[in-house]
Design a protein around this nucleic acid. Structure first.
Lengths: 340, 340
DNA sequence: TCCCGTTTTGCACGCGCGTGCAAAAAATTC
DNA sequence: GAATTTTTTGCACGCGCGTGCAAAACGGGA
């Protein structure tokens, strides 16, 4: 009985079937699907026609298994309250796809399960893990490194000094210096820095840089506050707590925020709970240039990272087989708007 | 020479190695890693110890290849401007992971490349494809269906009548009726419906339902406008265009929006470009209950979908081997806030 | 037409695990 | 303690493709 050889789901057509139909060997079929393989154009079209007639598509699982290269990366995210993540995901998936890479989205928000999530990604034998703006990155980083299964561990859009890690980010120090200079030039003198959560392994150097710049320039260290996550709602709570009922003459004249997620929360509170005007009473700056910054509602002065360029470099790193230091810091661009 | 048998990247330890270390057969090792497999507890712990000593993790690629079941789904997204997508991605990935499923994030925003993206997902032999709120879904749907490689094609959070498709969504008609009733009860009489892009295959029944309800109740069909994507920025443009310089007595008293992405753009324009108050001059309602709705800035009256419940059902569908009609509509919840 | 260099094609073996069944071991019964 | 049942373990074969090399086909010059 010939229908015995059909153990798998709905008679999958394989390269063998195409080979038979095209009158060539299986290996020639697979060659036809491979860029710059040594194959004659004539054979290739013959194979491709047979393939499309049969509806054949190469099986990437088998290819990955045989070659130990999956063209798959795991994207670890735990920071879904930050609108910038949406932008990053869009950009990364698009550019990775353009270069033939697929993306496994791993939600590491649930700290208890982060380990499992990472383990699972490693079981898929992804070629690399990419951490984007991870909030609880210390723990995750350790787990991931301990698993020792990711050929490359990339921290994207955040600086990491960890030696086993590749950091592709904007030059936070330079960026913050630029913002600090801008703030000072615009005549603000009582800044309050609104920082995000503190992590050990990977870092945004923004707070330290800003405070340092300001101190060097004016001799005083500005006030600052910390929000436990990059979440506008949490930022609202923190700003409400520290600014409500504060005497007018002790109010900051500008809130310099570590990123847009915090800035957006801050703006909402300043305007709607404190009843103050932006920028007349309190100005605000952010970081990232999320889409909402353009809204007339926020018109947020912020700093744009060259995401596309960074993603392209990421691909370069993924495809390189060298073993050098891939860390790189990019230059971004200050985007002045009405909020400061 | 024994080091010949090491063709793969950094001597991967396999089930065979663990088997040798534990003094059992390879099959017993794999059994130890499988839930409710027939294996004695004693052997299992012995195996697990050997495994963790060697740092062994089962290879899911090989497992998928051998069993033709990958526990992998492709999540197709093309609508990254809509903040609700972030919420959906978070929820879906978390709940899928909880049940042992991994997620391949496929960006189908670039229409030219959507076909490739889908093809690629199919090459990974995912068990199912999930479309979330796809904007250009007609084309994508056809491509995906044509590929005929997804065992299940699920339209999530959107209704589809396509017979080859499984639709898991909120009951849009019921939801919109509830909103319409609310709007009418609050005394609004000149609604304007702000709709998103029109698609053929999958649908949000919101516009038709609202217009129909209103007509039955008051005998008049409300005005409506269409935004070409669920993007606050585009919504701003459309609303600006249709409301700027309109005489006061022809102004709508409420904007009923197909979802929050549109509502948010509308609010920004109404307040900051038209200089009107919300809800006194124009009220606004949305749909989805994205996090920003809670912000005092928007305080958006909206409708919340039971995402968690829907995601749990999705898992149920994924794991079912029956061949019945899985379509299902859920009931959501109206969330009244200050905007209407 | 023959020869030689070049391009194109074929193939043995392996990637790591699942399936279904048979053999072995353990547990149960009388 | 022997016979029977139940649980546990082992194994042949296959999943679909990549690698590296050898064999075959091709092309051009004399």
């Amino acid at each position: 009985m010939s229908d015995v050889r059909r153990p798998n789901f709905e008679n999958n057509i394989t390269a063998d079937d195409v080979a038979e139909a095209a009158g060539v060997s299986r290996w020639t079929v697979n060659r036809a699907f491979k860029k710059d393989a040594s194959i004659s154009p004539k054979t290739r079209t013959k194979v491709m026609e047979a393939a499309s007639k049969l509806g054949y598509v190469p099986d990437l699982r088998a290819a990955a298994l045989a070659s130990d290269r999956s063209n798959l990366v795991a994207l670890l995210v735990d920071d879904f309250a930050n609108p910038h993540k949406l932008v990053m995901m869009e950009r990364l998936t698009r550019i990775l796809r353009k270069h033939g890479w697929d993306t496994l989205l791993v939600n590491t928000l649930d700290r208890d399960d982060a380990g499992h999530a990472i383990l699972n990604a490693s079981q898929r034998r992804v070629d690399a893990a990419i951490l984007i703006g991870i909030q609880f990155d210390d723990e995750v980083l350790e787990t991931a490194l301990h698993a020792r299964r990711f050929h490359k561990l990339i921290i994207f859009a955040r600086t990491s000094r960890h030696p086993d890690t590749i950091s592709i980010a904007v030059d936070d120090a330079a960026a913050m210096q630029e913002i600090a200079a801008y703030v000072a030039e615009q005549g603000y003198r009582r800044p309050l820095f609104l920082a995000g959560p503190r992590t050990y392994s990977a870092h945004l150097l923004r707070k330290e840089t800003f405070l340092g710049c300001w101190e060097r320039r004016f001799g005083t260290v500005p006030e600052f506050a910390e929000v436990p996550a990059y979440d506008p709602i949490l930022a609202e709570q923190v700003v409400t707590r520290i600014l409500t009922d504060r005497p007018r003459d002790e109010m900051p004249d500008i809130l310099v925020c570590e990123n847009d997620a915090l800035a957006i929360g801050a703006i909402d509170v300043i305007r709607h709970k404190l009843g103050l005007r932006i920028p007349e009473d309190i100005a605000v700056t952010g970081f990232d240039d999320v889409p909402q910054c353009q809204s007339p509602n926020y018109a947020l002065t912020t700093y744009r990272q060259p995401l596309t360029e960074m993603a392209e470099y990421l691909v370069e790193v993924l495809e390189s087989s060298e073993d050098r230091d891939f860390d790189r810091a990019f230059k971004g661009k200050l985007v002045p708007r009405a909020s400061a």
